[in-house]
Amino acid sequence: MYAATTIQKLALMASKPKSSRLHNLAGARWESVAKKPRMMTTNASISDSFSKYAEYLNNLNEKRERVVKASRDITMNSKKVIFQVHRIGKHNKDEVLEKAEKDLQAVRDQHVSRLVKELNGTDFWKLRRAYSPGVQEYVEAATFCKFCRTGTLLNLDEINATFLHLCDSSIEPLQINILDYLLGLADLTGELMRLAISRISDGELDFADKICRFVRDLHRELTIIVPNMDESHDMKFKMETMLQSVMKIENGQVCFYFLFVLDIELLFFVACFSVHVRGSEYIPMLGVNDPSYTLMGVPDMEL
């Protein structure tokens, strides 16, 4: 009896028209859709987003221009420091280096500080191309001063430490990256080559030899590092210039020794030639052909 009743209920449900059931389902779905209205983006929101992005680009371009200006000032004043160091000689080393180190401090306080303020709170890599030339020139000047003072290399950590007092302690400070540091070292070898040639011409062979060994060691170390670097196209180009600097210093030393020996031989030849010429112009004194007379025509005195 129970089974028959269940079968009858199923039969009644099956006999219900499908159209009414589909209509009920459609009504339920429409109600659920009506309860969740679709959000449409208005023209005002698109305009606001575009305005904010345009403002961001304008601010970034203005910041880039200020960074480029600061980089140019750093480059120009760092070159002045390098020219100052090239005035170094045997008797004015301390005086020249004190003036150069004072000028380098002024570069940090007046121009690098502007760069640091512009880059505070921003990603340094976004504007690296704008300030990289100035940073490389500063590295060249700072390492040049340090080598002439102590004969050692100023490392990257020591350079970055000089920037800490220029930055707000609550913001990440500007730090020179490895690539810009190595590019600055590559330029340093050219200045050392010029200094070595000038020292050779002044006879300071020991100082020139010290420079030659330093540049040769630096080139050897960079030859190992550069092939494993990313974005090292500029560095590979400067490595060729660095090798040329080493060869010029070595050739300068060889030429000096050659000229030194040649000068000795030349002086000996000039001396012999002068004796010969002066001898042909010599006028014999009175009594010089007389055996009883000696030098200056004075007869020997018997003691």
Rank of each mutant, 00 (worst) to 15 (best):
N43D: 04
K63T: 12
D230M: 10
D109T: 07
D48N: 03
D202G: 10
M235V: 13
C272S: 07
R114T: 06
R128W: 00
E31G: 09
M235A: 15
Q253L: 15
G203P: 08
K117Y: 04
L179T: 13
A106P: 01
G184F: 09
M76S: 12
V135W: 04
K248R: 15
E281S: 00
I159W: 09
G121I: 06
P37Q: 10
V139M: 02
Y131V: 01
E65M: 07
M239K: 09
Y138D: 09
S20D: 15
I211Q: 05
S15N: 15
F269C: 01
F273T: 01
S201D: 14
Q175R: 11
G279R: 03
D48A: 08
Q175V: 13
L259C: 00
N289A: 09
A26F: 10
Y53R: 07
K36P: 04
T189P: 00
E302A: 06
N120C: 06
M285I: 14
M229V: 04
A11K: 15
R66E: 06
T241R: 13
A28P: 06
H219L: 13
N24V: 08
V215N: 11
V81F: 02
A186T: 11
H233N: 08
L119D: 08
I211R: 06
L25D: 12
K52S: 03
R87N: 07
G134E: 00
C167G: 12
K18M: 03
C167E: 13
V246D: 07
